[in-house]
Amino acid sequence: MTRSTRRGVLAGAFLTVSLLVAACGGGTPAEPAPAEDGQRSLTLYSGRDEDLIGPLIQQFQEQSGITVDTRYGSTTEMAAQLGEEGANTPAQVFLSQESGALGALADGGAFAPLPGDVTGAVPAEYTSTDGSWVGLTGRARVLAYNTRVPEAEVPADVKELTGPEWNGRVGIAPTNASFQAFVTAMRLVDGDDATRQWLTDIRDNDPQIFPRNTAILEAVDNGAVDVGLINHYYVAAAETTPANTALKFGAPGTASALVNVTGAAILAGAAESAEAQELVAFLVSQPAQEYFATETGEYPLIEGVAGPADMPALAEMGAPDVDLADLKDLDATTQLLTEVGLL
Score class of each variant (00 low, 15 high):
30 A>F: 02
163 G>P: 10
38 G>E: 09
202 I>R: 02
60 F>E: 08
129 T>R: 15
83 G>Q: 09
196 R>F: 01
268 A>S: 13
270 A>F: 00
160 E>H: 13
86 G>H: 14
237 A>C: 02
175 T>Q: 15
101 A>R: 00
149 V>R: 10
177 A>E: 10
75 T>C: 10
50 E>Q: 15
247 L>Q: 06
105 L>D: 00
192 D>R: 07
185 A>H: 06
224 A>E: 15
63 Q>E: 09
87 A>M: 02
11 A>S: 14
104 A>Q: 13
28 T>L: 06
337 L>W: 05
100 G>M: 12
187 R>Q: 04
48 R>T: 12
111 F>V: 02
207 P>C: 04
37 D>R: 13
42 L>A: 06
34 P>W: 05
303 E>P: 07
331 D>T: 04
31 E>L: 05
17 V>L: 09
231 N>D: 13
11 A>K: 14
102 L>D: 01
326 D>H: 07
270 A>Y: 00
262 T>C: 12
51 D>M: 13
339 E>P: 01
306 A>I: 05
93 V>K: 00
129 T>K: 14
206 D>N: 13
43 T>K: 10
11 A>C: 10
11 A>M: 12
138 G>M: 07
198 W>T: 03
100 G>C: 10
76 T>M: 12
180 Q>P: 05
272 E>D: 15
280 V>G: 03
66 I>S: 14
61 Q>L: 08
64 S>L: 04
166 W>R: 08
209 I>E: 12
206 D>G: 01
262 T>A: 14
60 F>D: 11
94 F>E: 00
312 P>W: 02
104 A>N: 04
183 V>N: 06
41 S>N: 11
185 A>R: 08
29 P>D: 03
231 N>E: 12
337 L>M: 12
136 L>V: 13
332 A>R: 01
72 Y>A: 00
119 T>G: 04
274 A>D: 14
57 I>N: 09
140 A>K: 07
282 F>R: 01
308 P>D: 00
186 M>T: 14
206 D>Y: 03
14 F>G: 09
80 A>T: 07
100 G>I: 10
79 A>W: 04
303 E>K: 11
119 T>H: 08
137 T>K: 08
29 P>F: 11
161 L>E: 03
295 E>W: 10
126 Y>R: 01
174 P>H: 07
85 E>G: 09
286 Q>E: 15
269 G>K: 00
77 E>S: 06
48 R>K: 13
124 A>Q: 07
291 Y>Q: 00
14 F>A: 15
139 R>T: 13
325 A>D: 02
300 P>L: 11
204 D>N: 14
206 D>S: 07
152 A>W: 13
197 Q>C: 10
254 T>W: 10
45 Y>D: 02
44 L>G: 05
19 L>H: 04
9 V>L: 14
245 T>S: 04
336 L>N: 04
313 A>E: 15
212 R>F: 08
219 A>Q: 02
179 F>T: 14
155 P>E: 03
343 L>V: 13
56 L>T: 08
243 A>Q: 15
138 G>K: 05
14 F>Q: 15
208 Q>K: 15
310 D>M: 01
56 L>H: 01
238 A>Y: 00
95 L>W: 07
307 G>M: 06
107 D>G: 13
163 G>E: 13
61 Q>G: 12
340 V>M: 03
90 P>T: 10
251 A>T: 14
114 L>I: 00
113 P>I: 12
